[in-house]
Design a protein around this nucleic acid. Structure first.
Length: 422
DNA sequence: TTCTAATTGCAGACCACAAAGGGCT
DNA sequence: AGAGCCCTTTGTGGTCTGCAATTAG
């Protein structure tokens, strides 16, 4: 009977682990699904959403059905909350209002919770790469033990010009910038072709563009990989620093791969500045005005490492894809959320952008965290094989006989034999 | 505040053996 | 060119082990 027992016992356990992993890592994505009305839940909010639609006049503008409406324009979904003004603002109004003068630019703002989009975000979940308000954080991260293990850091308020040197950009452009944050998550899981479709910006534009959220990518993969390496390390430094300040968590090392953070001296070149700019963007650090024209809380930054507990085992087929941009990830782990800081092409039309986001969300929903079995027959043999302290043991003649007896008995009883379950 | 011991968490090793795959006849 | 044989390599899962990080005293 050991064969049957092991098979029966293993399946529910695997199922439970898979469900737990998915819940733990995709809690945020589930909220996205709900917000997109793919699954209509959250009854208490619906009335207000209808009001939002009505207020927006059904003007064809893409307004998130769940988002709080901008207090200024009353037309777009808010993206940030200004503490000084006690106002929820959309990206466009935020740029316009806070770029108006020096005092306004110093207003501290926080990104709106990505789950409910109705309250200021208070915490950044590194595993989900999402900024959440305290209520949503409590809801999401109390769902299961794995979710509770998600590392969250308080979100620092942001100030200054968020949108580069360009004052008062068009609403669509600012929407792009926020959409980009979500698009960043894509790269870790998209295949290369799709990633390229997300990434391939005009190199010439990039090389001079100071408005790509303030961070630039010259289009060279190698350069970018360097950035990723550095980001992952430096972000840990940041979070550790923050932990030390607020949670008394001792600092961790940057990893055993000895990725030495780049020292930015007086003579730092342009690329290094770009890296540093992006890095600070991710970390939510403010830039010195003399050195950069923006600062923004990268609350949706993807430079987050996950514990192996959170992600399970890497499918081999996925390793090649992941390894390209996640060279520092430890073996056997998926660093899904430390995906590269890539920006979506700003010239995308709203329809195209929507389509890409939908495609991304579909793929995110379809993520598979379970281990991929290349040879099911080997798995079956491994599960039935005798073990001593977890190690495979030699099959004795008795074992073989018992196994044969079991097989013949079962065949006689069922008259059909054992059909593999794979 | 510093040091030491205990605890916890994690990655990797280990095992046997069927199947896969390559080389050769 | 295809078949058959032989040998090497691969992959599979549960447990243990060593190391590093963390916590407690």
């Amino acid at each position: 009977m050991p064969r049957v027992t092991s098979l029966i016992l293993s399946s529910p356990l695997v199922f439970f682990l898979q469900v737990s992993l998915i819940l733990a890592t995709n809690a945020h994505s589930l909220s996205y699904i709900a917000k997109d009305s793919i699954i209509e839940i959250g009854i208490g909010r619906e009335r207000e959403e209808v009001m939002l639609k009505e207020e927006s006049g059904g003007s064809g503008g893409v307004v998130n059905n769940w988002a709080r409406v901008c207090d200024t324009c009353r037309a777009a979904a808010c993206t940030v909350y200004c503490r000084a003004d006690s106002a929820y603002l959309c990206a466009g109004c935020d740029a316009r209002v806070h770029a108006a003068n020096r005092v306004a630019s110093r207003h501290e703002r926080v990104r709106v919770c990505e789950a409910c989009e109705r309250a200021p975000a208070a915490l950044l979940c590194k595993a989900d790469a999402a900024s959440l308000c305290t209520a949503c954080d409590a809801d999401i991260h109390s769902a299961n033990p794995l979710a509770r293990r998600h590392q969250r850091v308080p979100i620092l308020p942001i100030s200054g010009y968020l949108y580069g040197t360009q004052v008062g950009p068009a609403a669509g452009e600012t929407e792009d910038q926020f959409m980009t944050q979500e698009g960043e998550e894509t790269i870790g899981e998209e295949d290369e072709d799709e990633a390229a479709s997300w990434l391939l910006l005009n190199p010439a534009k990039n090389s001079n563009n100071q408005n790509n959220n303030g961070f630039l990518f010259g289009g060279e993969v190698d350069e970018y990989l360097d950035i990723v390496e550095y980001n992952s390390c430096a972000e840990n430094q940041y979070s550790d620093q923050y932990n030390q300040q607020h949670y008394s968590v001792p600092p961790k090392s940057c990893g055993g791969d000895s990725v030495v953070p780049i020292q930015y001296g007086e003579g730092k070149d342009h690329q290094q500045q770009q890296q540093q700019q992006y890095h600070n963007f991710q970390l939510g650090l403010e830039y010195e005005p003399a050195k950069a024209a923006y600062s923004y809380d990268g609350s949706v930054s993807q430079g987050v490492s996950m514990s192996s507990m959170d992600v399970g085992v890497v499918p081999e087929s996925a390793m090649s894809e992941i390894s390209i941009s996640h060279q520092s990830a430890s073996r056997g782990t998926i660093d899904l959320f430390s995906s590269p800081p890539i920006q979506m092409p700003s010239q995308l039309s709203p329809m195209e952008r929507e389509a890409r986001v939908l495609r991304y969300r579909e793929k995110k929903k379809a993520r598979k965290f379970e281990k991929t079995i290349r040879y099911a027959s080997r798995k079956a043999y491994a599960e039935t094989r005798p073990r001593i302290k977890g190690r495979f043991a030699k099959r004795t003649d008795v074992d073989v006989e018992v196994d044969q007896m079991f097989s013949s008995t079962l065949m006689a009883e069922t008259a059909y034999g054992i059909v593999p379950s794979f």
